[in-house]
Amino acid sequence: MEPAIEVTKLSFSYKDGTRALDRCSVTVERGTKVAILGPNGSGKSTLLLHFNGIHLVQQGTVRVLGKTVNQHNEQWLRSKVGLVFQDPDDQIFSGTVWEDVAFGPVNQGLRGEELEAKVRQALRFVNMEQYGHKVPYHLSYGQKKRVAIAGVLAMDPDIIVLDEPVAFLDPAGKRALFELLNRLNRQGKTIVTATHDVDLAARWADKVIILCRGRVLTQGEPALLTDKTIVQEAELELPTVTEIFAPFPDLCQPKTPVTVEEARSIIKQLL
């Protein structure tokens, strides 16, 4: 598949000298769901901030939809890559939900009926249309998360990037969020999330990218998460299903399960 994002030998250091990324090379194919995994401090958020130009390249290259990212195409880039921060309070700042979702399209020059339609469509997609008049700070955390996503959707990006999307969400909120992300993916959007939740990545992603201390440890299918050596080196844990089946290698043929569905299949065969 044609790449949506290509990162080649990307290195980045903060002003205090902290080296957050060290020669990272990753590829995100168009139309896929990708999870970037790693412990806190592994460089996940720093990498995401390169995808829409909040951090500009210091060393290496980042290409998005075939274009090399630089200071001259930041506006174009942010229209193509929508970024949802971990904490929606870092993203929502307007007096009402409607105004917040409208902020991006207004800055794109939309006005009148076209603007109304964009905002209404985005809010409807995240099931928040009835909250347009509400003050964002009176919403629940999960509702704020959906408003932040609506603000990104109103810009109609090709790629949606989310930093720790399920942080502080309850189980119902997590399910609703990923049902939403799956709907977006079915519409052709490329979805990239950063997380340290291996169970989430195992059951949702088409591809995983594992970072450790600013470097790409490996990338490929979620089955990589059954490799105990890789998981330990990345300071992660095996998926829960894999942990249960790992002591019984004779049962795990042709492969160790990484999702509940795969585990069910093995159990059905045993029964």
Rank of each mutant, 00 (worst) to 15 (best):
L224W: 04
R213M: 14
P239G: 11
P222F: 03
G214Y: 04
L224D: 05
E233I: 13
D227V: 01
Q219V: 09
R213A: 15
R215W: 02
T218C: 12
R213V: 09
P239V: 12
R215G: 05
V231I: 13
P222Y: 04
T229H: 07
P222W: 00
E237K: 13
L236A: 05
R213F: 09
T218A: 12
C212H: 13
G214T: 09
T240A: 15
E233L: 15
T240Q: 14
T226A: 09
L217S: 12
V231T: 07
Q232S: 15
P222N: 02
E235G: 12
Q232W: 10
V231N: 09
T242M: 08
L236V: 05
T218S: 10
E237L: 15
K228R: 10
V241R: 03
T226K: 00
V216W: 03
I230P: 02
Q219R: 07
P239M: 11
G214I: 08
Q219A: 12
L238N: 02
T229I: 10
K228G: 01
K228C: 00
Q232C: 14
Q219T: 11
V216P: 04
L238K: 03
A234M: 07
L236I: 06
V231P: 07
L225F: 09
P239K: 10
A234G: 03
P222I: 00
L217D: 12
P239C: 11
T229E: 12
T226G: 02
T226N: 00
T229L: 09
T226D: 00
G214P: 08
D227T: 01
E233W: 12
C212D: 13
D227N: 11
Q232I: 09
C212K: 14
T240M: 15
L236H: 04
A234S: 07
G220L: 01
L225I: 11
G214E: 06
V216A: 08
E221T: 07
A234N: 04
L225W: 06
T226Q: 00
A223W: 09
R215V: 02
R213C: 13
E221Q: 07
D227E: 10
V241C: 05
T240E: 13
E243V: 03
E243W: 03
T229A: 12
R213Q: 15
E235D: 14
T229Y: 08
L225M: 14
V231R: 04
R215H: 08
V241M: 06
T229C: 06
G220T: 01
P222C: 03
V231Q: 06
E237P: 10
Q232Y: 14
E233K: 15
G220E: 03
E221F: 05
K228M: 05
L238C: 04
E235L: 12
P222S: 05
Q219F: 07
T226L: 00
D227L: 02
K228F: 00
L217P: 12
E221A: 13
T229W: 05
C212P: 05
I230W: 01
L238Q: 02
A234H: 01
A234R: 01
R215T: 04
E235Q: 14
V241A: 04
L225Q: 06
T242A: 13
D227I: 01
T240R: 14
E243A: 10
